[in-house]
Design a protein around this nucleic acid. Structure first.
Length: 198
DNA sequence: CCAACGATTCGCT
DNA sequence: GCGAATCGTTGGC
């Protein structure tokens, strides 16, 4: 049963220049994410690398992806399909982890006000709306000021499922989508990842 | 310069 | 299950 390559208790988040983005993506499963006091537990992530045709960084730096080439531990927020604000955690240069699903914990009333119907934080677009993300959040650090990323003390090493990333037309062979097998929000996602543990 | 296409979601058939 | 919404980036001419 493969598990994380780093010691979750040693230091979190692992924003050192050595941590490959796949390890960061796995490390963030089970972490607690807050955006201006609203958030929850990360349940689903995707990794995007530099030599990765599915990544925004693949063709080099530009106005949109500049944050991906900046320091680790900052938020890369971009506009998806002209309407959704999606949140990433920047790792090594040109690498980032897309936060796809959160188990809502804090500020649920606020999230529900922003999203009157349907799932609060299941899917990157819904999550961005529920957390009140905007393009002005692009480049902000996860330093506990507006954005924070912590590992709950009681959190153990979750069982992590993996599978192909969603919504991409290239790079499907990389099984870089990760999900917490225990997360309640992921019934359909878990079904699609059933039996895969890597 | 212009047409096509997304790291998506929602509503209707 | 399918198509619209919506806009910045991309790629072809």
């Amino acid at each position: 049963m493969p598990q994380d390559k780093f010691d979750r208790a040693a230091g979190f988040p692992p924003f050192d220049p050595e941590t490959p983005v796949v390890d960061l993506a796995r490390a963030l499963i089970g972490a607690h994410l807050l955006v201006r006091g609203v958030g929850g537990t990360i349940a689903e992530t995707e990794a995007y690398a530099l030599d990765d045709p599915a990544s925004h960084s693949f063709r080099g730096p530009n106005r949109r992806n500049a944050t991906m080439f900046g320091p680790a531990g900052h938020a890369y927020v971009y506009l998806s399909y002209g309407r959704h604000h999606c949140l990433n955690v920047v790792g090594r240069p040109g690498e980032a982890v897309l936060i796809r699903t959160l188990v809502p914990k804090v500020g649920i009333e606020i999230m529900r006000a922003r999203r009157p119907k349907g799932p609060l934080c299941a899917g990157p677009g819904r999550l961005g709306l529920a957390l009140g993300l905007a393009l002005t959040d692009d480049g902000k650090p996860f330093d506990g000021t507006e954005l924070s990323l912590t590992l709950p003390p009681q959190a153990g090493s979750p069982t992590i499922l993996c599978g192909p990333r969603i919504g991409i037309s290239v790079g499907q062979e990389r099984l870089w989508r990760f999900a917490d097998a225990e997360a309640p929000e992921l019934s359909t996602a878990i079904a699609r990842l059933a039996g895969r543990n890597c």
